[in-house]
Write a protein that binds this DNA or RNA. Sequence first.
DNA 1: TTTTTTTAGTTTCATTTAGAAACTTATATT
DNA 2: AATATAAGTTTCTAAATGAAACTAAAAAAA
Lengths: 146, 146
Amino acid sequence: MKNTVEFRSICPVATSLDIIGDKWTLLILRDMIWGHKTLFNEFQQSPESMPSKMLANRLKKLEELGFVSKRKGNLNKKSVYYLLEKRGLDTFPIMVEMAIFSSKHFFDHLGTTYTKEARTTMKTDRQGYISELVTNYKKFKRNLVI
Amino acid sequence: MKNTVEFRSICPVATSLDIIGDKWTLLILRDMIWGHKTLFNEFQQSPESMPSKMLANRLKKLEELGFVSKRKGNLNKKSVYYLLEKRGLDTFPIMVEMAIFSSKHFFDHLGTTYTKEARTTMKTDRQGYISELVTNYKKFKRNLVI
DNA sequence: TTTTTTTAGTTTCATTTAGAAACTTATATT
DNA sequence: AATATAAGTTTCTAAATGAAACTAAAAAAA
């Protein structure tokens, strides 16, 4: 098992794909940003049912790359909290573009209900939407009692 | 080998990952948009050296999904031209965000030279940058003699 | 016209990665 | 003391990747 990222070229798109180009990595960050999830078993509850082996593997990689940090609970010593760092938050614009793309082109497959206005907000005030969610996350992180 | 995309959930981010969440798919689209590449062997020349099996597999998938179209050459009957359709062009904003992300966070790895001003243009006039490249591609496609 | 080259793939096979499921270890709760 | 919970790890099978050799049709060269 490899533990360092291999860069295939100096292309910025390829470089991003070398890091986040798989089916699971971004879903963890999605759950952190949109769902304020922090615990291993919270990530497991997501509708995509990430296998625990994959989850452990990707959390480790995300930590090594400085996307997230890991904190052992003080109150409950069995809990391990994963929190977003700046680098992790900076993947958010990529995910927003992904959301805009798939709700435009794969609309049928996504639930009509939540797609309609969510997409409108993202498109009409993309930067504002991003900023607000980032601000919210930071507040959540500040107030979190571990 | 599977030939239909399986959607794991109705999350718009997950849905995009189900389609473009791998190390090769977007690189083909990158070469089409930025490099105006159209032929099988042109894609093979890219610095990431995509294996021909992967390339054939991904081109087929991209065609099935309506991201690209395939045209047999008139002039040279042995050439097969791959061209971007609207759906393929619409992945461009995702790639731009990827480029902004990796040139910000993995600067050391990318060549200093081309990173500096390319990133400035993308950030300061993101929408303009996107529109121009899309316009350029459309012009290229219109004028292409097959 | 025969030979060689080019283009666009396909096939084969070894290696790597993914994923399901059962298991483990430390801590917490009853 | 017994049971449950959280966060993983291990094991094993299936699927995807990738290197390399191969193929078929068309074009160019000899």
